[in-house]
Write a protein that binds this DNA or RNA. Structure first.
Lengths: 189, 189
DNA sequence: AAAAAACATTGATAAATGATAAAAAATTAC
DNA sequence: GTAATTTTTTATCATTTATCAATGTTTTTT
């Protein structure tokens, strides 16, 4: 089950396979049913997940009690509540399997140890932070410069799988609009 | 001029002063007049800046030709177009001094060398990526869960200096609204 | 297979924000 | 210090998106 992660990492880094294996072997396999919660608000996020199959999201609850989706991970993407994982302070987010999913998870303890001890893990961590940063950056840009309709069109173009596979409810909360608005946008275009 | 950066870093890390000095000595002092552009769109971003005095922003141009401010750095904050700096690919952003400013800058070449060779620089880089990530995260969250009015109130509470020191034009482009809307919001509350 | 629950669509209306324009105020340049 | 420029405010109108309500559809549970 860990081969998928190994392959993913070998694509990113040209590191000796045994170094990658050391890193990958700290991950444990885990399955999650649709809607299952993997991390809860007000808890410390103790794991980072790698999605082998399925989809997982991070969301938080707004003051009005609505769910807002910050990030959606499909296959071959990492997901965690980075801030809580880094600082081991309680998170304000939930992490939830959106579909039935197969995941790999690494604990904070193991992760920290590897990052402290091995250059490869440190480089991997930097790369992941960079990827996470760029992802958020794009997303922030889309809110700063696009209307809801443009954001939908942009998502359709750059990440159609999210729209095709996930429910309107989830997609709308990812785009920062209501379900009804999304339904109308879909009708138009 | 570099003592300010040294002190900032000593606060973040309990590393031997001489290691910090090695890192800091790679920075060069630079002044920038109000409105001066430090990095241009379509160029590779070759520097990361640390703001000693003044304020600097990163902005990009929307399809409608308007400036959208992604990030504002006040004193003791770093600013760069991270994606371009990391990959040395052309950026889509401008970096601009908003007020007359005193900056420290480090070149990509020097930075990369230090990160590759010293653990301290690598840790500093990780910390900066984390800070940048968390900043963006907060910002994304504010767009996902708040109206324009709520975003203004939030900024007023968490970072009033931005509202007090910078023009409505800049603040509005940072909040993702028009100047006129900001003016109205200011009037109300 | 039927019942229940969750999700999606549609319409009517309201609220928030944008666009445009013009005037007032502040800043900058000469 | 005055003119020129930029910024801010105010008003009106247009557009976008949210809200509420009703109905239809799909999925899940039993």
């Amino acid at each position: 089950m860990t081969e998928q992660l190994s392959m993913y990492l070998q694509n990113l880094f040209q590191a000796p396979p045994h170094e990658i294996d050391t890193f990958v072997s700290a991950f444990k396999c885990r399955e999650a049913k649709k809607n299952e919660l993997l991390v809860l608000k007000d808890e410390v996020c103790r794991h980072t997940f790698f999605v082998c199959q399925g989809s997982v999201r991070a969301y938080f609850i707004t003051d009005e009690g609505q769910k807002a989706t910050r990030y959606i991970a499909l296959e071959n993407q990492f997901i965690t509540t980075i801030h809580s994982f880094i600082s081991q302070a309680p998170t304000n987010e939930y992490i939830q399997a959106v579909e039935n999913s197969v995941l790999l998870s690494i604990s904070y303890t193991d992760f920290k140890k590897l990052v402290a001890e091995t250059t490869l893990a440190k480089n991997l961590y930097i790369k992941q932070l960079e990827v996470a940063y760029v992802t958020n950056h794009w997303r922030l840009e889309s809110f700063l410069k696009m209307t809801a309709g443009q954001r939908y069109g942009f998502l359709l173009k750059t990440n159609p799988a999210i729209i095709q596979r996930l429910s309107n409810r989830i997609v709308a909360s990812y785009l920062g609009i209501t379900q009804e608005s999304l339904s109308r946008l879909k009708g138009k275009k």
